[in-house]
Simulated assay, not measured.
Amino acid sequence: MATVPRAGLRSADLRGCDLGGADLRHAKLEGTPASDLTVWPNGFDIDVAGLVITGDPGAEPDVLLPAAAITRQIPPLLSP
């Protein structure tokens, strides 16, 4: 079980996270994005916590771009 007492999670993205076993008492969550797929501990009140419910981003891609795909091609240097 994760315990995050008084943790400032305002800049975290909790959309789709499973926080069912977390102790979120006193955690600072106002304005933090969450989604309908986020799992909360029993009895946790998202309205009181001030969370912003938004759409879920969906699954992460299976294959990230290889480094070669994110570099740019530069012509070879010419010696005088």
Score class of each variant (00 low, 15 high):
residue 58 G to L: 07
residue 13 D to F: 10
residue 46 I to W: 01
residue 59 A to L: 10
residue 10 R to L: 05
residue 3 T to V: 14
residue 11 S to M: 12
residue 73 Q to Y: 15
residue 70 I to C: 07
residue 18 D to V: 05
residue 42 N to M: 11
residue 34 A to V: 12
residue 43 G to F: 02
residue 5 P to S: 05
residue 52 V to C: 05
residue 49 A to Y: 03
residue 16 G to V: 08
residue 71 T to V: 11
residue 30 E to Y: 14
residue 71 T to I: 11
residue 16 G to N: 08
residue 66 P to C: 04
residue 40 W to Y: 12
residue 25 R to Q: 08
residue 65 L to R: 11
residue 32 T to P: 00
residue 22 A to P: 03
residue 45 D to L: 01
residue 60 E to I: 13
residue 28 K to W: 06
residue 65 L to S: 13
residue 77 L to H: 09
residue 38 T to H: 06
residue 49 A to R: 03
residue 52 V to R: 06
residue 29 L to W: 01
residue 52 V to G: 02
residue 24 L to V: 02
residue 18 D to M: 00
residue 12 A to L: 06
residue 31 G to W: 02
residue 3 T to M: 12
residue 33 P to I: 10
residue 80 P to T: 15
residue 79 S to L: 14
residue 21 G to H: 07
residue 7 A to N: 02
residue 27 A to D: 01
residue 50 G to Q: 04
residue 18 D to Q: 01
residue 41 P to L: 02
residue 44 F to A: 04
residue 48 V to C: 10
residue 44 F to T: 00
residue 10 R to I: 08
residue 42 N to R: 14
residue 49 A to F: 05
residue 4 V to G: 05
residue 45 D to H: 01
residue 23 D to E: 15
residue 78 L to A: 14
residue 4 V to N: 06
residue 29 L to V: 00
residue 66 P to I: 03
residue 76 P to C: 05
residue 50 G to L: 05
residue 73 Q to C: 13
residue 62 D to I: 12
residue 44 F to S: 00
residue 28 K to F: 06
residue 28 K to V: 12
residue 12 A to I: 01
residue 77 L to W: 09
residue 73 Q to A: 15
residue 31 G to F: 02
residue 54 T to H: 10
